[in-house]
C-alpha cells in the first residue's frame, strides 16, 4: 500500500549560504499493508513528523521514494482521494473561515466525488464520528478541542482513502477525550478498508490501536515488531522507551 524506499531527508541549519546540513532521516524503508494500522513511536525530535510530511507528499525526499499503490506520492493525482491526514494541532487544522461542512467537503471535491450525494454523506460522517448533524454549519472557533479533532477525522475519512496518516492526533487532547477519540479510531479501523499510520510518542496509545509498531530513533528505524510481541523487544533503546512509558 504505502511504501517508503531508502528515504533520506536533511534540513539546512543556520544561514542561507553559511549553514550546514543536518540529516533528519537516514535511509528509511518500510511498507504499510492494506488495512493495517502501523504505529511509529519515538522520542521528540527523532524525525517522526518529518517522515509524516514526506509520506504525505508535502515535502520531497532528498533521496528515495514514497509510493502509494506503486505510484509516487509526490504526484498530486496519486494523493487525491487516496491519502489523507489528521494532525496534532486541531486549532490550526481547520481553516477559521470554513464551516464544518466546507472543511469536510474539501477533500471530497479534490477527489472529484459526485456532488449530489455529498450532503447525506456529510451527515453520515458526522454521525460516524459522534457529532450531531447540526454541527455542519458551525465554525471551528465554536468547537471544543475534541469536537474539532472529530471533525478532522471525519474530513480525513470522507473520501474513504486507502491510507490515513495521523501525526500525534490525540496527543494534545484531554486524557478523557483522548480515550474517546482512540476508541473512535479503533472502531473506524475495524471497518478494515483503510490503512492507518499512527505517529505518536505515546506507547500505550500505539499499543491500543496498532497491529504493528515501528520504533524510531534519530531518523532511523530501530526495530519493527507486532504489537502482541511488544514485550520481547530486542534493542536496548526500545526497551528503555517501553519501560519509561510504563512507569509513567
Amino acid at each position: 500500500m504505502l511504501k517508503a524506499e531508502g528515504v533520506d531527508k536533511s534540513y539546512r541549519v543556520g544561514g542561507m549560504f553559511a549553514g550546514s546540513k543536518r540529516q533528519v532521516l537516514h535511509d528509511v524503508s518500510f511498507e504499510c499493508a492494506r488495512g493495517e494500522c502501523l504505529g511509529i513511536i519515538g522520542e521528540s525530535g527523532s524525525g517522526k513528523s518529518t517522515l509524516g510530511r514526506l509520506l504525505l507528499g508535502i515535502e520531497k525526499p532528498d533521496r528515495g521514494t514514497v509510493t502509494l499503490k506503486g505510484r509516487n506520492v509526490m504526484d498530486r493525482r496519486t494523493r487525491a482521494g487516496a491519502l489523507s491526514a489528521v494532525f496534532q494541532n486541531y486549532r490550526s487544522s481547520l481553516n477559521p473561515y470554513f464551516t464544518v461542512e466546507q472543511a469536510i467537503m474539501e477533500p471530497m471535491k479534490a477527489a472529484r466525488l459526485a456532488r449530489d450525494g455529498m450532503e447525506e454523506k456529510i451527515g453520515e460522517l458526522l454521525q460516524l464520528v459522534g457529532l450531531p448533524a447540526g454541527y455542519r454549519s458551525k465554525y471551528p472557533h465554536e468547537l471544543s478541542g475534541g469536537e474539532a479533532q472529530r471533525v478532522c477525522i471525519a474530513r480525513a475519512i470522507s473520501t474513504e482513502p486507502g491510507c490515513i496518516l495521523l501525526d500525534e492526533a490525540v496527543s494534545s487532547l484531554d486524557v478523557s477525550v483522548q480515550a474517546q477519540v482512540l476508541e473512535l479510531l479503533r472502531s473506524l479501523k475495524e471497518r478494515g478498508r483503510t490503512s492507518y499510520i499512527f505517529i505518536t510518542h505515546d506507547v500505550q496509545a500505539a499499543a491500543y490501536l496498532c497491529d504493528r509498531i515501528m520504533i524510531f530513533r534519530d531518523g532511523r528505524i530501530e526495530e519493527t515488531l507486532e504489537t502482541s510481541k511488544l514485550g520481547s523487544v530486542r534493542s536496548a533503546y526500545a526497551r528503555k522507551l517501553l519501560a519509561s512509558s510504563i512507569t509513567i
Binding site: 504525505l56 507528499g57 498530486r76 489523507s84 494532525f87 470554513f98 474539501e106
Partner: peptide
C-alpha cells in the same frame, strides 16, 4: 505553515 494548508496539500488539492 498552518496545518489546514498542509492538509489541503496532502489530499492533492492543486
Amino acid at each position: 505553515e498552518m496545518d489546514y494548508v498542509r492538509f489541503a496539500k496532502a489530499v492533492g488539492i492543486r
